[in-house]
């Protein structure tokens, strides 16, 4: 159990700067999710905390102690890799016990800890098997078990669910969350999947091109994005962006963002903004209607599944409450 602090951490590969200074304070027992599109530097950041990448500039502290120069094994961390990185020639038991064996833990202590972890993860029947004799979900659990038995101060997850099918992913997501609550270990979790980020995180870090655009609780980030990137990346379907100048009214900032669920379809007479329906996606509980405004901008409307669905090609008006509007400057910052 520990706190983790990132203090203006930067990373450069040769001359290419990939992390442009990230500050982050992680409280003891907190679950932090780093989310961003591929290539934004989120994995690099995690690997720097793990000690698998060197820190070019800045400082990483675990429980207040600087670890920039420490080897991974001396940082009191455990990591779960995307492809699980199980040792193929070792049984499940040996895979989980390997770290403890190296640390010189007594045999009965190892057996006890592995048994406890296997119990938590329902792996008891498989302890003698090799990784290749397990399903993807089971391998994932072994990778988790390997992290748990070491009783580390910090868990690091590098996209641990991206190799699983959709159904299993949802199930494992829940299990990871439950496990983390139970163990109360500080966790840092990297993913490109915003649903994972929203559901798992106590606080989430939205990364964009090597910068932490926003750090905050998932719902705060969702309802109050600080930049245009965050507004567009978090939420599905993504926020609609309209050219503020072309709207002609309330010309604050360069672009106006409005979430699909805040847009309503109204009779044309009631509004000054309208468009033609390009196509509609009825999903049962809700319907997504994709419109094109008269000057060619795309807008998605998300409405309750019970509402009438307009015909394709029909024209209709759209409206929203002014308080739901988000205004962004040319630089992408919220104004």
């Amino acid at each position: 159990m520990a706190t983790v602090t990132l203090d203006n951490v930067r990373k450069a590969f040769g001359k290419t700067q990939v992390i442009h200074g990230v500050d982050l304070d992680i409280a003891d027992g907190e679950f932090i999710v780093i989310v961003g599109p591929s290539g934004c530097g989120k994995s690099t950041l995690l690997r720097m905390v793990a000690g698998l990448e060197s820190v070019t500039e800045g400082e990483i502290r675990i429980d207040g102690a600087r670890v920039n120069e420490a080897e991974p094994m001396d940082r009191d961390i455990a990591m779960v890799f995307q492809n699980y990185a199980l040792y193929p020639h070792m049984s499940v038991f040996d895979n989980m016990a390997y770290g403890l064996k190296i640390a010189g833990t007594p045999k009965d202590e190892i057996a006890r800890r592995v048994a406890t972890a296997a119990g938590m993860l329902q792996l008891e029947p498989y302890l003698k098997r090799r990784p290749r004799e397990l399903s993807g979900g089971q391998r994932q659990r072994v990778a988790m078990g390997r992290a748990i038995v070491r009783k580390p101060a910090v868990f690091l997850f590098d996209e641990p669910l991206s190799n699983l099918d959709a159904k299993l992913r949802v199930q494992m997501r829940l299990e990871i969350k439950t496990l983390q609550r139970e163990l109360g270990v500080t966790s840092l979790y990297v993913t490109h999947d915003q649903v994972e980020a929203m559901t798992l995180a106590d606080r989430m870090v939205v990364m964009n091109a090597g910068r932490a655009d926003q750090i905050g609780r998932p719902l705060d980030v969702y309802s109050n994005p600080k930049t245009e990137f965050v507004a567009g990346f978090i939420g599905s379907p993504p926020t609609n962006f309209l050219d503020a100048a072309r709207l002609g009214r309330r010309a604050k900032g360069a672009r106006l963002g409005i979430r699909p669920e805040h847009v309503r379809i109204v009779p044309e007479a009631e509004t000054d903004l309208g468009g033609t329906v390009a196509y509609a996606e009825p999903l049962g509980a809700e319907t997504l209607i994709h419109l094109r405004t008269l000057d060619g901008q795309a807008i998605t409307v998300r409405q309750d599944g019970a509402h009438p669905i307009p015909e394709e090609g029909a024209t209709c008006g759209i409206a929203w409450e002014p308080r739901d509007e988000m205004h962004f400057a040319e630089s992408g910052q919220r104004v």
Partner: peptide, 26 residues
């Protein structure tokens, strides 16, 4: 896979230990 070497590093295996425990059996 590189992750195997990294996992061993996180597990605390020094290079020769990784060599004998993981690379050699593989």
């Amino acid at each position: 896979p590189d992750e195997l070497a990294e996992a061993a590093r996180v597990d605390g295996a020094r290079p020769m230990r990784f060599f004998f425990d993981i690379l050699l059996p593989m």
